[in-house]
Nucleic acid binder design. Structure first.
Lengths: 222, 222
DNA sequence: TATATTTTTTAGATTAGCCTAAAAATTTAT
DNA sequence: ATAAATTTTTAGGCTAATCTAAAAAATATA
């Protein structure tokens, strides 16, 4: 007997999943509140509810962790989100910076039949338009290995841009102005000590990017 | 300055629109309640809200009518519903009896850009998989003319099945068992007085259908 | 270790959408 | 035209998800 999961709960589970990726500690109430633009007291209420449904394990004052079934739901929501993003870009010709908000709505459509048929229709894509891996229907996610942030690689290294850590429209539009897109080959020329800004070469042209940008570029050294 | 319209309100507006198609009177509270599986008192509450937003004109005890802006929203919701149904059948290979519930969810996605791009992607279809006309982005709907219910035509007439008045899965599955689908050519052979059941010929085969079925088949005489 | 700060939880309200039961208005029937 | 039946509205509650403000617990600091 499965509980019915709604829109709001899916958003909480997704947020907890994302936050638990960085550290392997329990996720704090405040962190969830910040990520969902809500208040800590609302989060506490919801954690109690999700704990009762067996989707998170929650110990007062010590944060939460997803249970296996909670994680499965989170991954399924992420799967739907990313598949819809592929649909919007590949089939409806949206730009990669325009799809996030629409996918936030589409990810809550309930029908596994729909999701699986969409997956097939799109040709079982492995990555979304921002380079994020798409979980399969069992919640298995192909983590990209050997990737780093551009800010972490050594001077002189050649690498390929395989993903972005920030999918916001402003950031993506900014990238386009620097001729950066998924697949771009980048060579790190230099990092300036003063402000940690970087000098890179893309398509034979030398450019300068801020450390803030470099922190959001996921690259694979060649 | 446009009010934000949510899921629930869209459903009410759509129901009022459908109900006001049959008669040109105001739509009654009870009729709306029945159509949405809710209670009359809930409908009254919502009518006050929609009236305040200028989407219906409501006079206590005398039912409601959509205003122009209310009708535009209803038609836009119907547009989205029917476009998604086309998507599900044409692109994802769903059967026509499987798409209603999924489209009920998809119709509430908010993005006119999405709707219009979907329309283009689908090749600007004029009818959905059940033969219902799809409104354009201005809420203009191409009513099919010269159509009747199969129960209304004269014995001996040849006609084409162009639509169904009931899109429920049970009904559509039932039709398939009688080899009836959109575009089928039908000749009305006889109507039995006893139970108003009909004898028809489809694809050179003679079949018998109930008056209940005939009341739900929209046909165009040849 | 005691105190100050921060984080989290609790308590009590609010809003949207729904409900039941009772009251009011309208419609139908005698 | 009056009574009966039906429809609609009002009144008062409920739940989910949110909020603010206060209390409690944990963590950091002196």
């Amino acid at each position: 007997m499965r509980h019915f999961i709604n829109h709001t709960e899916e958003n909480y589970l997704k947020a907890i999943f994302s936050l638990s990726q960085t550290s392997n500690q329990g996720v704090s109430t405040n962190a969830i509140a910040k990520s969902l633009n809500t208040k800590a007291s609302s989060v506490t209420d919801m954690m109690k509810k999700l704990a009762e449904k067996g989707l998170v394990s929650y110990k007062k004052y010590y944060g939460v962790q997803l249970t296996d079934s909670g994680q499965l739901i989170a991954l399924n929501t992420i799967r739907k989100h990313r598949l819809w993003e592929v649909f919007l870009v590949d089939k409806l010709s949206f730009n990669w910076d325009e799809v996030h908000d629409i996918a936030e709505q589409l990810e809550h459509i309930q029908s596994s039949e729909l999701t699986n048929r969409l997956d097939i229709f799109l040709g079982n894509p492995k990555f979304d338009p921002h380079g994020d891996p798409i979980p399969n229907s069992h919640g298995e996610i192909e983590n990209y290995h050997d990737t780093l942030l551009l800010s972490e690689i050594e001077t002189g290294t050649f690498c390929t841009l395989v993903g972005v850590a920030d999918s916001s429209s402003v950031f993506l539009k900014h990238l386009e102005k620097s001729q950066l897109k998924l697949g771009s080959e980048i060579r790190l020329i230099n990092v300036f000590e003063y402000d940690r800004s970087l000098s890179i070469e893309v398509a034979n042209i030398q450019r300068s990017i801020s450390n803030r940008v470099a922190d959001n570029l996921i690259v694979k050294p060649l």
